[in-house]
Design a binder for these strands. Structure first.
Lengths: 144, 144
DNA sequence: CTTGGGGTTGCAGATAGCCCACATCTCTCC
DNA sequence: GGAGAGATGTGGGCTATCTGCAACCCCAAG
């Protein structure tokens, strides 16, 4: 659904490897963040646009299908509410809004994300050590 | 295959969510690191043990099936070589050793991991901002 | 014969990405 | 002025991959 960072290693490390191609799993927090950052309800399509600008993608639009699916799933979990808007002109569109449960979920996500970074970083340090590399160089992405 | 960090949120954020249950995708670098850290070739079984001690798991043993599969895949990619050892006594066991290509791959992985952490952290900062939370609290995991 | 080391296959369920259907509106090109 | 491209908007459905569980093979020690 979404790619992340450096694309060079493609094929041999998979897209960017592991989390790589399908760091998808971070779709929930990404969408939650997009919604949380908005003062008004958003349409699915807009969420796709905004998600594309999220750090998760260097502007690469996520698969819309996936976003809608995640949205539906989040609604089942009570993290968002949605309703149809049927303007006189134009196609019907569904509007999504965060619930309190959704905000709470995002709060938990923030801890999880912190956890991920520290865990991954530990691995990185270990790996560097095993290779006899000094201090790991500072992160740089923005490649994609 | 492997779990990561805080287990509390289970069910509603999924195990630890996203990368969560199947942060599996980091099996490659974990195994590469285990091999790189060893002066001698290792048996698959041992790799499973050592991987369990990696930051990726709080001691939770990864599913052996997955490890062996990853190992075979890595061999196809030329990251490791393996051979059978048939001791007079005891079952045959396969020994694995890192190749230069494997070390090179790990080196690339280190960059990818750095990339992951910074990307995930950016999301975390964004999320915190969206919720109006001050500076994100310092990471703590070790829960699992 | 049970436990534990050591390794592997098969299967089933979950994921997730891609293609495409459907609908409306706008803008361009002939 | 009419055809068609293309953006806006939502989804269904197929397929491929992932991955964990259960099962099964070997062998040795207790």
């Amino acid at each position: 659904m979404w790619a992340i960072c450096n694309p060079k290693a493609d094929g041999d490390l998979k897209p960017c490897a592991a989390l790589g191609k399908t760091l998808s799993r971070l779709s929930q927090p990404t969408i939650l963040t997009v919604l949380a950052a908005s003062a008004v309800p958003l349409h699915g399509y807009v969420i796709v646009q905004k998600a594309a600008e999220s750090p998760m993608f260097g502007g690469n639009k996520p698969d819309a299908t996936g976003v809608y699916r995640t949205l539906r799933q989040m609604e089942e979990n009570g993290y968002v509410t949605s309703w149809w808007e049927t303007p006189k002109a134009g196609p019907a569109k569904r509007a999504f809004e965060l619930t309190d449960a959704g905000r709470e979920a995002l709060r938990r996500w923030i801890d999880s994300l912190a956890c991920y970074t520290s865990t991954i970083n530990e691995l990185r340090v270990l790996a560097s050590g095993a290779l006899g590399i000094k201090t790991p160089p500072t992160p740089t992405c923005k490649g994609s």
